[in-house]
Amino acid sequence: MKKAAKKPLTARVTFLEMIQRHVTAVPPPSGMMLALLRAENCPVHFYRYLYEQVGRPHHWQVRRKQSDEVVREIIRSKKTLLHVFYVDGCPAGFAETSLRALPQQAEIICFGLVPDYQGRGLARFFLRGVIAAAWGQDPGKLVLQTNSLDSPRALQLYQKEGFAPVGTKDVVIEPWPDK
């Protein structure tokens, strides 16, 4: 028997930008082995695994319906920074930053932690590393967007780290299907 389709979700998207680099470092949380590694030539299946683990609870859509060929072209492009965050040797999150609009801006397309690693004081340290890598490409500004389906602490974190809201809009999002 076929399951009924889930109803579309409405979300408020907030657009944010950072126009100045941070100069202070965030100390790493103690008691854990942490590594933020740039992933070059990332296999599509590993990217999709991370995308689903991080994005499913928040109904991320950007890469969900793109073909493997399109995703491969994007994530292996020299205009994309892909970072994987490891905690005690396990993948705990990832970030994707687009450099396509350089020198005007860099855009953090995806950023997040796997649910098992949320609420452990890791997001700020992880985000600072992603921000530093993006500013290392010398953009005029750094932009990102979040929405009301993301972690309830996401918007606060971005603002604490120096991003300022510059606009909002309401969107309809197709929910992820049940597993």
Rank of each mutant, 00 (worst) to 15 (best):
D178Y: 09
E17T: 04
K179D: 14
Q104N: 05
F94G: 00
I19R: 11
K65G: 08
A123E: 01
D150T: 02
K169C: 00
D68I: 10
L102G: 03
I109K: 02
F46Q: 14
V23F: 15
V114W: 12
L50D: 07
K78M: 00
L155N: 05
Q53E: 14
A39R: 14
I74E: 13
C90H: 10
A154N: 09
H58F: 15
T80F: 03
V44M: 10
G89Q: 08
G89D: 10
R153T: 11
A133R: 08
P43L: 12
D88P: 06
V26K: 10
L149P: 06
S30N: 13
Q156A: 13
P139I: 05
Q104E: 10
L9Q: 07
V71R: 14
M1T: 11
K78W: 00
L99I: 06
A4E: 09
A106Q: 02
R38W: 05
P115Q: 11
L122A: 07
L9S: 08
H83E: 05
V130S: 00
E73P: 01
P28F: 15
L122S: 08
T14N: 01
A35K: 15
R76C: 12
R64S: 01
M1N: 13
I108W: 00
M33D: 15
K141R: 15
V71L: 12
S77H: 05
K7P: 05
P177E: 15
A25M: 14
N147Y: 06
Q156P: 00
Q159E: 12
Q105S: 12
L127W: 05
